[in-house]
Amino acid sequence: MLKDITIGQYFPGNSVIHRMDPRMKIVLSIAYIVMLFMAKGFSGLAVGVVFLAICYGVSHIPVSLILKSLKPVVPIILFTAVLNMFFVEGDPLFQWAFITITKQGLSTAALMSVRIVCLIAGTSLLTYTTSPIVLTDGIERLLSPLKKLHLPVHELAMMMTIALRFIPTLIEETDKIMSAQKARGADLESGGLVQRAKALVPILIPLFISAFRRADDLALAMECRCYRGGEGRTRMKQLKLTSRDIVGAIIVALTIVAIILLNIFFPLAIA
């Protein structure tokens, strides 16, 4: 039941995108987000959609996974679409009492929905093709210039890595504690909100205690292996930019150029 939750949605594979440098992937994902907002019309956005579809095709991520990642944002998409539909002024298409739907409203709504879908699907591609540990590694390296500003970049990355590492462990632990309390007759399924919140106490307290215990043990184990922060620490896996990263960067750059050109020559939709 609890085990079905997937956090850190890494989908293992061996495609070109999987093997790209995480730093490049992060940068290109940001570039893709910028690209989506640069596209002013349907033609530009269509390029963005096609680009993403090709990326997903190359990475062999099943369509069902994309749909799964989009499920939680459906309400947000609907909400923005409805807001845009009713509140953008322009040529009325449909009028009833105080409700007016305009042509511009409709196209903005469609545009925004596609944009949000691409946004989520695009960033999900990053987490689907990059394991959480590699991802934090990439983030750490990207942020390392901030060390000069005395920002504890390594410590932050280490915290993220540890947090990600312990999610499955804690889920398993929660499952166990829940079973144990249920065996003692704890009723977790019925009752009102207050009652249910109270029923969580016998689960949360042991869970916290075990989390603290694990933290203590882990700190000790790290110290035993001479961990003393990021200073002078070398890595087992050196990140290296390769030709495929450069090719990826060039492709994204060309797509952005294409979108700019489309914006200039085909300023479709939205008046």
Binding site: E173, A180, Q181, A183, R184, G185, A186, P202, P206, S210
Partner: peptide, 30 residues
Amino acid sequence: RFKVGLVFQYPEYQLFEETVAKDIAFGPSN
């Protein structure tokens, strides 16, 4: 569940009450 009591492995990790007496009382109270 009251007829068949199950003690899990490492059951001490399920303790949560303020006192030992209250913790033992959790099952019978339920």
